[in-house]
Amino acid sequence: MKVLSRIGFWLLVIAIGLFALFPLYYAIISSFRSGSALFTTAYLPERFDPTNYIAVFDRQPFGQNILNSIIVAGTVVAISLGLGMTAAYAFGRIAFRGRALLLMTILAVSMFPQVAVLSGMFELIRSLGLYNTLPGLILANLMLTLPFTIWVLTTFMRELPKEIEEAAFVDGATPWIVVRRVFLPLMAPAAVTTGLLAFIVSWNEFLFALTFTLTNERRTVPPAIALMTGSTAYELPWGTIMAASVIVTVPIIVLVLVFQRKIVAGLTAGAVKG
C-alpha cells in the first residue's frame, strides 16, 4: 500500500513535469530541424541544423526587435521601480488621509482590462507624436507595471520593522534620507523581485505593442513573432518561428530559474497579502 502510493506520487510528479516541459522541449527540437524534416514528427533530437536561427535574423529585423524589447522593458522597469519605491514608502509607512482610497484605486488600475484604455491611449500616443515609437510603448506599458510595482513594494515595505525607521528619525534623518539610506538598501531584494516581474510583464506585452507600432523595425518581440510570415503567404515558417521563440524564451527562463525564490515571493506578496 505504502509502496503503491509512493509510486503513484512519483508518476504524478513525472506527469506534471512532462506536461510543463514538453512544449518547450518540442519547440527546441523543432527549431533545429528545417526544410522537409519539419514535416515529419520527431520526438528526439536528431541533428542540430542552425538554418532556422540564421533565417530568423535574415528575413526580418529580429535583432532590432529584441533590442526594442530590451529597451522598452528596461526603461519601464527603471521608471516603475524609481517611482514605485518612493510611493511604496508613503503608502506602506505613513498614515495620511486618503491613503486607503488611493491604494485601492491603484490596485483597481492594475486590474484594468488593457482594451478598456485602448482607444484613449491610441489618441494620447498619437497626439504626443509617439505613434510607432518606443517611448510610446514605454508610456503604455507603465500602465501595466507601475500600479503593480507600487502594490507589491508596499506590501514588502510594510514588513520592515517600524523601529528601524524610528531609530533613523531619532538619529535625525528626514523622510527622504530614510528612503534613500535605510529603506532602499533594505528593499533591494524586494526591488529585484518586483523589477523582474515588471520586466516579464513588459517583455510579454502584446496588445499595446501590436496596436501602437506599424513598422517591423519598431516592433517588440511578441508582435514580431506573431506576425512572422514565410516566403509564401499560405505556409507559416514554423521552424523560424520556433527558433525565434526559443531565442526569446531562454533568457527569461534562465532569469526565472536563477531568481526562482524571489519571483515566488513577489507573486505571493502581490496576491496573498492583498
Binding site: 528601524i164 528619525f169 531619532v170 535605510v182
Partner: peptide
C-alpha cells in the same frame, strides 16, 4: 520638535539596528 532636535537618544526593544 522632531525627535532628533529634542536631544534624546532611544534604545529599542528590538534593537532596531540598521541591518545593512
Amino acid at each position: 520638535l522632531a525627535p532628533a532636535k529634542r536631544g534624546i537618544a532611544m534604545v529599542f526593544q528590538s534593537y532596531a539596528l540598521y541591518p545593512h
